Structures are given as structure tokens and as C-alpha cells.
Amino acid sequence: MKTIAEVMSRDVTSVSPDDTIRQAAEMMDDLDVGALPVTEGNRLIGMITDRDITIRATAAGLGPEETLVTEVMTEDICHCYEDQRVDEVMQDMRDIQIRRVPVVSRDQHTLIGIVSLADLADPDAGTDPGETAGTLRDISSPGGMGQSSPRP
């Protein structure tokens, strides 16, 4: 079984906790993504999603220019390491119903990449198409724990 290092995307953009949610939303729009890792320096401290901006900020009446990423981001997030096996990370994704997982270094907890369900569905990932389809089904089914569950 392949490791995450063999399938992850190393070209990952992150935001700072001191950026505004407008800046984060603009980056998401430019990159056509729904989530961005939040880093201090290169150290991963959380994730912000389009849903965080919509539900936590907009629904609470927080303005995009004065609300900082740190106010609405999710801090305790699932992450993985580049030497983990793909099947292990896919199981974590199923268990907590998430489509992308930041990849961090074991020593410094610095962001080194991101792995998405699309990365795992790639034929070169070496995953069983049936297992990948099952992972997508499990991630998409209602009633999961969501993004806020940390990886032990």
C-alpha cells in the first residue's frame, strides 16, 4: 500500500489566523477550493472552510472586513503524516466525514501538503476503486462528526 507522500499535493496555499475572512474567501474563490489550512509560520493551527465563513461568521452577523480567520476557523482538525499508509488515512476520512486532510511533518507539525479524496481516487494512487467509492459514500452520508475531530 502506498504512503500519503506518494499521492498528496505538495502545492498547498494557506492563510494566516490574522487574515480577514474576506481575504480567505477571496483566496478560496481564486483557487476554486472550499477549505484552506491556517498556519502560523509554516505550523498548522487549523482549517477554515467556506462553511465556517457562511455559518459561523455571516449567520452571526460578523463582517468580512473586521472578522479574522482565527475567530471562525476550526482549530482541532484531523491531519496526517506523509509516511502514513493511504488506507489508514482513508479510514480516518470515512470516520469523520472529511474530503481533505492536511499533511504535516512529525517533528515540527509544519504543513507540507494536503491530500484529498480526489488524490486518493486517482488511478496512480493504488487504491481500490470500490474502497474509494465507499469512502465517498461514507463521507457524504448525513450524521457524521464533521471536521472538528482531531487526529490522535
Rank of each mutant, 00 (worst) to 15 (best):
M1W: 00
T3A: 12
T3M: 14
I4H: 01
A5K: 15
A5Q: 07
V7G: 03
S9L: 01
S9G: 03
R10C: 13
V12G: 06
T13Q: 02
T13A: 06
S14N: 14
S16Y: 05
S16A: 08
T20I: 14
R22V: 06
A25M: 07
A25F: 05
M27S: 07
M28N: 08
M28Y: 11
M28G: 01
D29W: 10
D32F: 07
G34W: 04
A35T: 07
T39W: 00
E40A: 09
E40M: 14
G41M: 11
N42K: 15
L44N: 00
G46S: 10
G46E: 02
G46M: 04
M47P: 02
D52S: 04
D52K: 03
T54D: 01
R56F: 04
A57H: 08
A57V: 03
L62Y: 01
L62N: 07
G63Y: 03
G63N: 00
P64Y: 01
E65L: 15
L68P: 04
V69R: 08
V72H: 04
M73P: 00
T74V: 11
D76H: 13
I77V: 14
C80K: 04
E82Q: 14
D83M: 02
Q84N: 13
V86C: 04
V89Y: 11
Q91M: 15
Q97G: 15
R100S: 03
R100D: 02
V101G: 01
P102R: 01
D107F: 03
T110F: 12
T110I: 08
L111C: 07
L111S: 14
A118R: 12
A118F: 07
L120A: 08
D122Y: 03
D124M: 07
A125V: 01
G126D: 10
P129W: 00
G130Y: 12
E131W: 05
A133K: 08
G134C: 02
T135D: 09
L136H: 13
L136T: 13
R137E: 15
R137T: 13
D138W: 00
D138H: 05
D138F: 02
I139K: 06
S140K: 04
S140T: 12
S141L: 12
P142F: 07
P142Y: 04
G143Q: 08
G144Y: 12
G144L: 14
M145F: 05
M145H: 09
G146S: 08
Q147D: 11
Q147K: 14
S149C: 12
S149H: 11
P150S: 15
P150C: 13
P152I: 06
P152Q: 05
